[in-house]
Amino acid sequence: MTAAPTSPDSPQTRPRTRRDWLLSDAPQTRRQARLGAIYQGWLTFRANKLAMLGLVILVLLIGMAILAPWIAPQSPYAQNLADRLQPPSAAHWLGTDALGRDILSRLIHGSRITLFIVGTVALIAPIIGLFIGTVAGFAGGWVDQVLMRITDIFLAFPKLILALAFVAALGPSIGNAVLALALTAWPPYARLARAETLTIRNADFIAAARLQGAGRLRLLIGHIWPLCVSSLIVRVALDMAGIILSAAGLGFLGLGAQPPLPEWGAMISDGRAYILDFWWVAAMPGLAIFTVSMAFNLLGDGLRDVLDPKGDKS
């Protein structure tokens, strides 16, 4: 996104349609250039049918989460012991669980939990990683040594076991599951951010900024962070599916959301005892997890093509 020369926006040069304006070879404002770049990205993205599929699924998921109370046929908590373990039918499209709760309604409400976990982890982990990585790369010396050593220690830990340990130490709840996942997810971001920092810290424009008297902190926040963000975003997009699977794994082990919350991993765990005769209890939430993490994967691939064209286009 290089800065375009600014010139008065005269009516004569304004292209006829908005599309043409966006795709103009000679953008006349910084804003036009930026919007144009975004639009170009969107066109690339839109051409990728699978990525679009992922996007559509995720939009539907978000819609479902927002509208959950209105579109769920029943309360996700309403028990009916007389009606337990019913197979999928007109009354219960996806059947009922061991306490006679409607599985569809629980899945719909559960989408909120899934989105909450993924969203929060995807926000926290990269920020921790960005901070540690850039500080290490920029400061160098012993600061770098110490920070990278810590990163290594966390990397050498079996990831799920580390998350398990955190939750076991903090007590099981959604909040702690998010924290544990974030604490185990940051090291790769730190590595990435550090590597990016190393490539740019000696760049001319940094030197220029330094000469102009910019402080270290200002260099870090004002110049280095923005340049690391785009590669981190690609990485986050690609990691989203992994976060969903890890969160479901914690829920499956009883260390995520607590009952009666309809967390999908916990629902599979609930259904495990009934798997032989009442397969739908475990199968349905599993399919939900699969669908959503697949959507994130598709979206991530699409985003990578747009934001990181150097990367592997497969």
Binding site: A241, S293, N297
Partner: peptide, 17 residues
């Protein structure tokens, strides 16, 4: 793609079943 998206514990359960 399916491999990255599938919860392994779920696939294991279904496989056993």
């Amino acid at each position: 793609l399916v491999g990255y998206s599938m919860p392994i514990f779920w696939l294991g359960l279904m496989g056993l079943l």
